[in-house]
Design a protein around this nucleic acid. Sequence first.
RNA 1: GCGCCUGUAGCUCAGUGGAUAGAGCAUCGGCCUCCGAAGCCGAGGGUCAGAGGUUCAAAUCCUCUCAGGCGCGCCA
Length: 557
Amino acid sequence: MQGMRQGIFEIVKEALESARKDGLIKTGEIPACSVDTSKKEEFGDYSTNVAMLLAPLEKKPPRHIAEVIKDRIAAFPQVEKCEVAGPGFINIFLKKSYWLSVLEDIVRQGSGFGRSKAGEGKKVQVEFVSANPTGPLHIGHGRGAAVGDALANILKAAGYDVAREYYINDVGRQMETLGRSVFLRHQELLGKKITFPEDSYKGEYIKEVAADFISKNGERYKEALEADAVPVFSLFAGGALLERIRKDLKDFGVEFERWYSEKSLVEKGLIEATIEELKKRGCIYEAEGALWFKTTGFGDDKDRVLRKADGSRTYFASDIAYHREKIERGFDTIVDVWGADHHGYEGRVRALVKALGYDDSVLKIIFIQLVALLRKGVPVPMGKREGEFVTLRQVMDEVGVDACRFFFLMRRSDAHLDFDLELAKSQAPENPVYYVQYCHARIKSIIGFAREKGAGVPENFDSRLLSRLDQKDEVELIKHLGSFGEVVERSAIAMEPHRVTFYLMELAGLFHPYYNKNRVVTEDPELTGARLLLCGAVATVAANGLKLLGVSAPDKM
RNA sequence: GCGCCUGUAGCUCAGUGGAUAGAGCAUCGGCCUCCGAAGCCGAGGGUCAGAGGUUCAAAUCCUCUCAGGCGCGCCA
């Protein structure tokens, strides 16, 4: 079934059309009106503001127009009644049978419920994490991973053709620094006295990689010249750390379609090719010994250097080649998930897209605000330079993947996130992860209990059975279940995964009170069947939603 | 100084231009002989940072001010 709200929108549209045919409305174009689920019961199931928007065009009072449309809406078979209220809202009340068909839909579609074709198969690439292989992933990368992965899931569910990609910065000075750091540590481990330069990586993991190197290569490089050794150690360390990153992400539940190496860009000559193209377009000039990209011609604050006076390329030079390559691979939209500290970078990348002659709306950048890690409300110190950062591995080992991902998805991406370790791993009521999972487990348990009593979830949907679900809270639950697909769609379009998280917390927030008030398994087989059907649908939607977030839906906890 | 983000209940945060602004936590008071108490019920708590403006209608859009965060390299 198409989204319910969409269905209502069609009804409103047809009602307007018919009013127009009868000469009661002159405006041909229907204004961009809203059709919303009503906030209050007395306002019906759905409300539209179309009459208020039409009023100035028709030069008639909104309530007058509403009256004209009202009866035409009420004439539709799904509609119970229709009222005009307040300044000119049209409140639509639907027949109960309409909601029951939603329930049937959920049971029939099962794990497919919530999927749609809204994205029309458009190709979207989501590039996220893309941390340099110079150290383990930290907590901030974790948030980016959770958001990027959930976003990809949601886009896919909404009918987009999605590819996840990780861009590996595997060349450049930082890789040299990494190589040198490991080389020096390895010499130290072999008994040489070493002084470490200021800019070297000092984390414990450097020693681990150095030890690993020794176990594989012995002492061959103990006396090697730094210039000879660094490339060898860079390659080794980069590979080892990338493996570690892959493993961390896999254990975190994230898998990429493609890992794109910056080195491969260099080897394929794509950087030079991109510069050539920009040259042809007149966007490149030389000054003070450096090669510049005139990004200011496309809205950037200042022009950017691509090749420094010393002949080496900037990071941005790789980036223009990579983004050009991504667009040319034929994606309708490319999404970059970046740490919020990179927002200064947006202007120059947009400039590139425009300079290449594309509409920069193909590029969507999602900024991930950094995570403040707390323990019982006290900040945990972070900072990669000091080598005392908290890794994603530590956090997911301590609090578990489910809680970790859920917490990362509880906030808008660009909002600050306080991540309290003690709260995340506590099984206390104040931990919201369990609220949703518990809802699922509880239902599974109820269904198990019912089965022991000889009652199963009914297979057929005869209307008599379903008509037993006539309480307010039951209709309310069904209504909420029915909006799941819409939430997924909107979450996809807005690229805001947290909407799904909130939806699930709301769903659990409707189910728990319902469960507490109503007994599911009773002596009345028909009522039992109907309620089991409802509960089953709640469990299905909860599971489908959690799946989008990459959080498990356990049968038992 | 310039740019981006943020400012909503004691705290952490939701809130596609719509009707009386919501939730969780915290606080206080209740609920397990009965399908999972990781749950439920109830109570209190608000100048939506402030000032203008647009609109029939603004937490939401525009301008300015204030406060916090981040960014402004031939670093990555």
